[in-house]
Design a protein around this nucleic acid. Structure first.
Length: 286
DNA sequence: AGAGCTGTTACCAA
DNA sequence: TTTGGTAACAGCTC
């Protein structure tokens, strides 16, 4: 379920585990469909003996650069997670892939098994179509506005499109639109430069704030996002996501839930107008 | 017990 | 090009 802030948190956790510089001594695959490419046999054979040179993030992908120039990519999809495991501990119910290091194992767990891994020579084949990183300085307001006008699409759908912008999912799309005061159904090519600026600023603020909270954990069931075994605390900061019927923190009106593009969409019908007209009444600033 | 929901994405049809 | 439906899979909530 991880979006950009959760994946960023996972990368930091993996680095703090001390994996950078360590050799992958063994590879065990318990659910073959997790390995997208190459074949499982080749994946295991070619990954064994490689040393992890760095661990970074691109969109919602975890990028482990290896010392031989190849890359181990992981996408957690809905319920994927990494956990350190003492060596010789038994296989867990949702363990899908297990990497053995000299002093510990790293287990990829995934109850729904939607997540995927790739071992590739170049990033292009998997990451090539991804849109810009939200924090890329080259993504100026002007560029963002231009990109918005390249599509005639509802803002909510466009923000979920990883080829438009890399890293947003359902939570942060809704939160960013609220923060920007824009209706989820607003057409992307109708935004004024000032509105595009507000949206980009909101996206960066919402993501940055969540990263500083260690990401968003919802509930405590299996597959829920955690960091170092602990829940991220950003759920406390959510303004609209999963707050259907509750009072808007800005104007007090009830938050509404609709379905757009098959995804639950939460917004304040009073603060997020379709027309972009100024909001009447007593409200707090965004 | 059963129906409907879920943080993601790929694919197909219209 | 865009939206909508379905699918992968399993757990959670009501």
């Amino acid at each position: 379920m991880p979006e950009l802030p959760e994946v960023e948190t996972v990368c930091r956790d993996l680095r703090s585990l001390g994996l950078v510089g360590k050799c992958i001594e063994s590879v065990r695959i318990f659910r073959e469909r997790i390995v997208s490419a190459p074949s499982c046999a080749t994946f295991s054979a070619n990954l064994t003996g490689a040393v992890i040179a760095s661990i970074t993030r691109r969109g919602k992908f975890i990028v482990m650069a290896l010392d031989d120039g190849r890359f181990l990519l992981t996408h957690l999809r809905m319920t994927g997670s990494f956990s350190p495991r003492l060596k010789d501990t038994p296989e867990g119910l949702y363990d899908r892939v297990r990497l053995g290091f000299h002093d510990l194992d790293l287990v990829y767990q995934d109850p729904r098994a939607f997540g995927r891994m790739w071992l590739v020579q170049s990033l292009e084949s998997v990451l090539g179509k991804l849109g810009p990183e939200p924090f890329d300085p080259a993504l100026t307001t002007r560029v963002f506005h231009t990109r918005l006008h390249m599509h005639h699409k509802m803002l909510k759908s466009l923000l979920l499109d990883q080829e438009f912008l890399a890293g947003l999912g359902n939570i942060y799309s809704d939160e960013s639109l609220f923060e920007a005061g824009l209706h989820p159904k607003r057409e992307s090519d109708s935004l004024l430069p000032e509105e595009a600026d507000r949206l980009l600023t909101a996206i960066r603020m919402v993501l940055d704030s969540s990263i500083s909270q260690g990401g968003t954990s919802l509930g405590d069931g299996v597959g829920n996002f955690t960091s170092n075994g602990h829940a991220g605390t950003n759920s406390m900061q959510l303004r609209v996501y999963q707050r259907t019927g509750q009072a808007c923190v800005r104007c007090g009106q009830p938050i509404e839930r609709i379905v757009l593009g098959q995804r639950g969409t939460h917004f304040c019908p009073h603060c997020q107008t379709l027309t972009g007209e100024p909001i009447a009444g007593q409200v707090r600033p965004f």
